Every structure is written in structure tokens, then in C-alpha cells.
Amino acid sequence: MSQALSRTARIPKLSRFGWLMALYAENHARLHRLFAPEGLSTGSYLSSIGDGLDVRLDVIETHRYTVELRLTYDLCDPLTGEPDPSAYVRLYRDAHQTEATHCYVGRRWQDVIGLYPPPAQVIGHRMRMNTFLGKWLEYLAEQGHGVATLRRVEAATTMDAA
């Protein structure tokens, strides 16, 4: 019995922040395997697998250490005219982390949890967004989306021009 207790006592426990950082690392691995966005230039890309529900990847900006992306389906919400679901993503090249910064147009964390939320609430909100992103990336991979199905689209054929 004492041997079993000593083994469990040596297992480190993750804090919520540590768990969030691990989630960012998992999301980076999933996104990298799915679309390898680090190698894409600024612009819009579509992944089509023939199910009528194309995935749109917008590379908004690339910097030395980060890539700003938007991941969505190529369809619009009839009420707002904006893509839904939609996730804005920041990929950190040097740290191998990927973070969902917000998941709906016009709904940043300040809109959801207020201007001065307690730190635990901020971490909880980020955990929910990034859990959603991880599950979505996993689902897209299971459906067959990936680098092989990704093609660049010109500005005239983008959703914004419609």
C-alpha cells in the first residue's frame, strides 16, 4: 500500500494554466497536421471534400513568430451575414502553440466575460474556446480535410465578394 502511495505522490499535477498551455500545444499539432498553415502565404484557402460543406482558412497576417488565421465553413449566418462557426486563431511558430483568440465575429473575450474578469474566469473562457478548436480540428481531420484538399482561392471568388 505504501508503495502505491509513493508512486502517485510523484506524479505532478497540472494547474489550469498548465492544462491550457498543453491544450495550445495539442491544437498546434492538430492544425499543423491538418493544413500546415506556417507555409501558406496571406490569402484565402478552401478545403473541399465533396460534402457541400467547404472549410475556409484565411491567412490574415504572417509575422516572424506568429501567423494570424481565421477558420470557418464557407457559408454565412443568415442573421448576421458573417461566417459561423468561426474561430480566429493565433499560431506561435517559435513556441509551437496555437490559440483560439475568439470564436465569433464581434465577440471578443471582453464582450463575453466583461472588461475586468477574475483570472480564473479568463482561463476558463480560453479553455472552452480552445477545447472547441481542438475538437473541431479533430472532426475536420476525420472528415478528410487536409493539405491535399486545400486550394487557394482568388479574391473574386471569396465569401466577402458575394
Rank of each mutant, 00 (worst) to 15 (best):
M1A: 13
M1Y: 10
S2D: 15
L5S: 13
T8I: 09
T8S: 08
T8F: 10
R10K: 15
R10I: 10
P12K: 08
K13W: 03
K13Q: 12
S15Q: 12
S15K: 09
R16K: 14
R16V: 07
G18W: 04
L20S: 06
M21Y: 07
M21I: 12
A22P: 01
Y24G: 02
E26R: 05
E26L: 05
A29K: 14
R30S: 12
L31T: 04
H32F: 09
R33S: 15
F35C: 13
P37L: 03
P37S: 05
P37F: 05
P37I: 03
G39H: 13
L40M: 08
L40I: 05
L40Q: 07
S41K: 10
S41N: 10
I49S: 07
I49A: 08
G50W: 10
D51E: 13
D51Y: 05
L53W: 08
D54S: 12
D54H: 08
V55E: 01
V55I: 06
R56D: 04
L57T: 02
D58W: 00
I60Y: 00
H63E: 11
Y65N: 12
T66F: 07
V67R: 01
E68A: 07
E68M: 04
E68W: 02
E68V: 04
R70M: 06
T72G: 06
D74G: 06
D74C: 06
L75S: 15
L75H: 15
L75V: 11
L75G: 14
C76M: 09
D77G: 04
P78K: 04
L79A: 14
P83A: 09
P85W: 05
P85T: 07
S86W: 02
A87W: 00
V89L: 04
V89C: 03
L91R: 00
Y92H: 10
R93N: 07
R93F: 05
A95H: 13
Q97R: 15
T98R: 00
A100Q: 05
H102A: 11
H102S: 10
C103Q: 01
V105W: 06
G106I: 01
R107E: 11
R107S: 12
R107W: 15
R107N: 11
W109N: 01
W109H: 01
D111I: 07
V112G: 04
L115P: 00
Y116S: 15
P117T: 08
P118Y: 12
Q121H: 13
I123C: 06
G124I: 02
G124N: 10
G124M: 03
H125L: 07
R126M: 13
R128F: 03
R128C: 05
T131H: 08
T131W: 04
F132W: 14
F132D: 01
L133H: 02
G134V: 00
G134F: 00
K135Q: 13
K135T: 10
L137S: 02
L137H: 00
E138F: 04
Y139D: 09
L140H: 02
A141H: 11
A141C: 07
E142D: 14
E142C: 08
Q143I: 08
G144Y: 07
G146Y: 06
G146L: 08
G146D: 08
A148V: 13
A148F: 09
T149K: 10
R151V: 15
V153L: 13
V153E: 15
A156N: 12
M159L: 15
D160L: 11
D160E: 15
A161D: 12
A161V: 13
A161L: 10
